[in-house]
Each structure stands twice: as C-alpha cells, then as structure tokens.
Design a protein around this nucleic acid. Sequence first.
DNA 1: CTGAAAGCGCTTACAG
DNA 2: CTGAAAGCGCTTACAG
Lengths: 369, 369
Amino acid sequence: MEDGPTREEGVAVVADGTDRTSGAELPFADPAGRPTLRTVAELAGVHVSTVSRVLNHVGGPGVRPASRTTAERIRRIAERVGYSPNPHATGLRTSRSRLVGVLVPRLVDIVLATIYEGIEEATATYGFSTFVANTGDDPTAQRRRTEMVLARRVDGVIFGDAYVDGRFLDEVAGRGAPFVLVSRRAGDYPSVTCDDVLGGRLAAEHLLALGHRDLAVIAGEPYASTGIDRTAGFLAACDAAGVHVPGSRVVHSRFDTEGGRAAMSRVLADGAAPTAVFVVNDFAAIGAMGVLRDAGLVVGRDVAVVGFNDVPLAGSLPVGLTTVRSPMHEMGVRAAHLLMRRLGGEEVASERLVPVLVPRASTLGDRGA
Amino acid sequence: MEDGPTREEGVAVVADGTDRTSGAELPFADPAGRPTLRTVAELAGVHVSTVSRVLNHVGGPGVRPASRTTAERIRRIAERVGYSPNPHATGLRTSRSRLVGVLVPRLVDIVLATIYEGIEEATATYGFSTFVANTGDDPTAQRRRTEMVLARRVDGVIFGDAYVDGRFLDEVAGRGAPFVLVSRRAGDYPSVTCDDVLGGRLAAEHLLALGHRDLAVIAGEPYASTGIDRTAGFLAACDAAGVHVPGSRVVHSRFDTEGGRAAMSRVLADGAAPTAVFVVNDFAAIGAMGVLRDAGLVVGRDVAVVGFNDVPLAGSLPVGLTTVRSPMHEMGVRAAHLLMRRLGGEEVASERLVPVLVPRASTLGDRGA
DNA sequence: CTGAAAGCGCTTACAG
DNA sequence: CTGAAAGCGCTTACAG
C-alpha cells in the first residue's frame, strides 16, 4: 500500500479515544500486536482468569467476579489498550462461535437482500455475525454452501432458499445444526414467512372487485412455497367467487424480470390476452409488463397487473405497480430472533406475517396514477 | 424443531457418501460430535502431527509429509469420518482466519450486491469466507462496523463505501489490517473501480452527438468518487466541445430512486427543463424519469436521460434507459484478487475497468425502442 | 518418515 | 474475592 508518511508514523489516538499505538509495545500482545487477556492482566496486576471473569461479568445476584475496585481497574485498562477478545480462542474454548450462516438464492434479488439486512441487523444486536452465501436455488450449490458454512462452525443457519419438499433440510437436521427458514416454508421446520396464501387472496379479491373474470397467474418456481402459496390463495379466492382460471393460464416462471417476460410471452402465445394477470413477484411483474407493452397493450387500461412484495421501485415505475406488500425486512428480523431462541434451546413456532395490498395504476389505470 | 421420527433416527449416509453417524460415537470427537484431528490420528494409528502434515500437504518438491501409503490411509479415513478442521483452532494457532470483511453502503443497492457477489465468489475460490456489513454511508456506522469486522480477526477488508477524502481509511491503515477499495477510490489506497471519468465522457459524447446543448447533471453524493469522477468526465467532455453546463444545473443527490426524484425536481424548479440529463446512477435516473413524466415530458422525445451502471432493469423499463455499463461483478472479483495479493505481501496497483455506453430509448426515442 | 512437545488465547471448574 | 491449572483443536519447529 502506498502509505504516506503520516500513516507511517502511526495514528496516536483514534476517534474513540482508545490509545492503541502510543508508548512501548504492549506486554504479551498477540502476533499482530493486539492486546490479549494476559496484557490486561499484567497491566492490572491480576491473574488472567480474574480479567476474564470481570469482562464477561460472570456472577449472578450476589456473586461478584471481583471486588468493585479491581473490576473497575480491569475494565479501565481493557478499554485503554483497546482489548477485544480473540474469537478463535473463545470459540475453541466454548465451542460457540456467535456466527450464523445465511443461505439465499441470490443476494442481487432485492427481496432477499432486504430480508438479509433484517437478519444482519438483528443478529448484530446479539453480538452475532453472519455469513451469507448465494445458492442460486441450485441443489448442488445448496449442499456445497451449507457444508462450507457448517465447516466454519456457525452456531446456526437461516435458510432463505428452502425447497418446499424439505428433503435437503432433513439431512441438515441430521447434522445437528439448529436452523430456521425465512421467506419460504418447508416441511414442519420453523419458518418466518409472509402469509402468502392470504397475499394471493388479496390479489384475487382486488381484481375480482374490479370486474375481471379472465385471469392468468405467473406462478414462480414450482419448488418455492412463496409461489405455490400465493398461487393457491389466488386460485382459491377465484374459486370461491365462481371464477375459473384454466390450468393453461397458470404458468411457472423464474422470479426475475426475464422470467416474467418469458412467462408472459407464453401466456400471450396461448391465445387472447387475459384482462388481468397476477404475478407472484414484482420483478417478474415488471418483465410481464414489458411484454404486454411490446404487444401493444396498455397496462392498467387493457390489462391489469398485480405483483408481489412491493419493492421500492414498484411505486416509481412509469405505470405504478399494484402489488401485495410483504414485510421483507421484518421477516429477516423475526427469523433472526427465532434462531436466537432456538439457540437458547427453546421450542419455537413458525410465524406468518400479514401482507397488505397496495393499489396503483397497473390495475386502476389513470385513477391509480 | 419438530423433528419427525425419520430424522430422530439419524441420517446414516448423506449424499456425498460420507458416513457420519453410523456405528459407535467417533473416538475423540469434539463436543458436537464432530471428528477432530485426533479422531483421524487414532483411527489411522498415527500421531496427530502426521495427520496435520498430510492433510495440509506440507512438503515441497521431494519433501513428503508421510509415506505414500500412510498418507493415503489418513486421507481415506479423514474423508470417511467427514473430518473438517476446526477453524477456531487453526485460527488461534496460525493467527490467520481466512476471513475477509466487506463494508458496503447498502446491500439492497443492486450495484453493491452485484459487486459483493463477485467478491464472495472469488474469495471462496481461495477458501476464504466473507462478512458483509451495511454502513449506509454513515461515518459512525463505518467506524463501528469496521471495529466489529476487525474484532472478528479478519485477514483483510474490502471497503465499498470509501469517502473520497480517505481520512477514515488512514486510521484503519494505522491498525495494520490490509485492505483494498472497490467501486470508489480514495487517497492513494489500492482500488478497483470503473473508469468513471471515461464513463462520464461517454455519456457526454453520446448526448452531444445527438445535438443536445442544454444539459444537466444529477451528480450523486459529494463524498463518493463515483459521482465526482463521472460528473468530472462529463463536464470535461462538454467543455472540450465548447458546451457550458452552469453550476446550477449540476446537483448532488442520493444514489437511489428517491434521490433522483428530489434532484430532478430541483432542476425543474430552477427554470426551463434541460433537453438532456446525465444521472450518475441508474436508480436515481429512474427516479428522475418519473419526475419528468409527472411534469408532462416524454423521456426520449422531450428530454434525454442517461444513467450509469446498466442494472438488469435498465433494459426492461417501459422506456429503455440509455446508460453507461460498468462491470460490477467483475469489479468485485478483481477486488477480491487484489486483496488476496495484498495478503500475500505483494505491492498492488489500482485497477480501473472500462465502461461501455449502452444506447436505448431514453436518448434515442422510438429509434431506441 | 514420524513422534512428542509447546503453545496460540481463552474459559471454567476447583481451591483456598 | 482471587489464583492456578487444565484443556479446547490445531500447527510447527525440533528430534530421531
């Protein structure tokens, strides 16, 4: 690195007031020059075990880790030298790492990225850090990435890429690593999801109320509970209203823009355009809207489109996208809490968060602009 | 967890053929029942140090870690019991963690998410894992998250959220953690960026060639080299062509859709609309397009808009967005390699990757549809 | 070619 | 209230 002289001379005092480089080398520092427990012990004139007890505030009501004055001295010194425990040593000793692995289909999918932000935020409040890995919904990658994460000795795992059959998860459960699911449910494993069935119903009721009877569904991947449940909820509501959606009008798709394009093209190739389309993902919905436009149809006037998730962009599109808002960030936060409770040995139950329909121009036309 | 009986009875053989749970407990397993080096040594009838040497293929040309047959036996046993080294033990012993910290403004920004995917992918090929943390471009968060990452004893850090002044980085450099920058440059620290000056120039040349003379720039945050350099390149090219862009027509903005909306509104409030706008980020460009539309202007006919990055959505928009494509994934990959070389003790030089202009309807009108 | 020992930096019973 | 010891699972000179 092209260090200038200023940096070469060292930064005497960093912003938090900790004096990390002044004076002589710290006694009993680690190879990188960082203070160890021994450093603090030596400076305080006590045994390392005392320092450890004090800094971990061991001791319940009435039980003190050390005398008040000793404890204070130790804490002051630890602060002054900028002591932070070596997580490798702690991890080795306690066999807990305060690490959690998070597996997602793709982090560039803003839905998953938002969920992950919630996870990261919430786990951090427990002093945990997270590894994320993309699996691209590919079983081989899921396996390999899970191995990698377990090899890192994470305390737990959050899967955001579960296949609804849960077979892979059965294997993981056999390995003894606690985990929870987020976004997608599978088997009987604890999960935090959006109430996708309800979401699908909200979409259907909205379209039915607007008078639509000629409907199509772009349903997502067949292995993801999100698409499955949203579609099921939609179709059930149609059924209840006596509106039949033919099987040829329910097509699977990838969850991205390109997937929506391909699926919408297939629907159009199949005959006359429906008057309304429910797409189980906003990005796929954007792709579908593109195809409709290219076919000379005006979204919101000729064809209504409902998406799912309410990504930030949905409201900023030229034709605002009516969509079912799912609490993405909140799902991440809750999943993190759920895992923490599992790690504490609690039995936990799945949580289903309530979605809300957000009507915009893509179903309301000018009224929704 | 609601384990069914099948899972309770254990999964005898997992998919990779490793027999992890059959027979009696492994000898000298760790508290979680995982095999240790000692497990393998005992099973192979050799000393742990021999196992360690074999599994780490110690030994250069001519130097063997063990006899061929012993080595093979050890490797077979390690494979059979599913041995994977405890990274805490290795980390404690070697004071290297094979961990890298990655700081980004926000992971929900697809630009950063794409860069991060490249980083993650490339570091994984070195056997490294990554921690990501959001800092929201907030100096306090940058400090706190960096502390957190260093406390985890990462071997190195990649900053995707550098302030161009580099003052915070000067402090970090004083702490002895090797790092590189990605996306944004700062000071003389090694970085992998897009050639943003060139990108700005490409945008200007495109608009000038189309005959535009009445220009505006939505310039991003003043502390980010991306916005600064893109704007500088744009203005320099205008200057060279004898076209003056008044200072009032160059406005700072956040990098997201909302930021683009706000900035575009300010430009419009300031007087007559320009005939062309260069926005240094695609999402901000989408926001700007929304404001133009709301003002009754047709993008691509009344006003030309050029964005930056070419996010996947840019081409799928109702009015395709002309934009300067930056190699986001590639930047992440290169930054990872650069850090790895730094960790190997190499002196490394910054890399600037070449952007390409992608013309679409937002500047070409119907011709670009 | 292989073994034995030391030690990385912690935590946690166990004494006193 | 505090100290001393053991040991977590590795790696790495050092012997032989």
